[in-house]
Design a protein around this nucleic acid. Structure first.
Lengths: 134, 134
DNA sequence: TTTCAAATGCAAATCATTTGCAAAAAATTA
DNA sequence: TAATTTTTTGCAAATGATTTGCATTTGAAA
């Protein structure tokens, strides 16, 4: 329930921000701003959508949250960084988080080849999940 | 200039579709629908934005084009599949295509671990480009 | 507490994307 | 080739996610 995250300096830790972070911590997969809104509402916490958007943007800028788009959908999704890499089933839409993303092993290779200092990445993989195969 | 792509069955090969594909073939990096619109206009070809959106959607559905979003921007970008993996400089926004994406090597590993049949993927990597480091 | 900049909520504004529909163009057939 | 049928286009209007202005509230420093 309580956040293990270090809240970014220079911002006030409001109850709205705490609540939004808590929803993201409990979310299994990346969720939309509207998802956050309704999950808060289920918990009897009413926060306006604009406040949610404003804070998600701030949290992204500060690196605490990752924004992504799922193919075919037009709403942005938000998640804590440990859920930023995922598999998506093209048949049923199920999202499965990739733990220990194998891409990490290639940071050095990319640095060598392209000269970039790598700071982060996001991987989306499409496929057919076991349930949909049968 | 001429497309090497096999145009999907069941669709008419209109001059608009040819022109849109040609722009994407010549694009170095993923571009927005609006980019396509203006590049066509530069070539004295006037195609309505809605036609561009409709065809990009169709081409995505048929797998000829990949749609993606660059972190921090809110317009969708479109590219041929060989340009779907890229590095983005967090300082200047420059996009560099990753050739021979190392991620391909991990398809089998993902299949083993998660049981998905992998059909595609998209990789975005953030970092600081050589120019911005100096 | 008092103070004050930062944050919130609401309603209105934005803007990328989608959609309805009549006209134009491609493919099919005669 | 002309006629027919179906798809595609362009335009304008609609949509819907996200952003913004502003008055009010709130967190945190003094």
């Amino acid at each position: 329930m309580s956040s293990k995250l270090k809240f970014p300096e220079g911002y006030r830790l409001t109850k709205q921000r705490k609540a939004i972070l808590e929803i993201l911590e409990n979310a299994e997969i990346p969720i939309t701003a509207e998802d956050v809104f309704f999950r808060l509402k289920e918990n009897k916490i009413n926060i306006s959508l604009s406040t949610i958007y404003r804070n998600l943007e701030m949290l992204c800028k500060e690196g605490l949250v990752i924004k992504s788009y799922v193919m075919g959908k037009d709403k942005a999704r938000f998640a804590l960084p440990d859920k930023k890499n995922y598999l998506i089933c093209e048949s049923c839409g199920k999202i499965v988080i990739i733990d220990n993303c194998p891409f990490d092993k290639f940071k050095e290779e990319l640095k060598q080849v392209y000269g970039f200092d790598i700071t982060g990445h996001s991987v989306e993989v499409y496929g057919i999940c076991p349930d949909c195969k049968s």
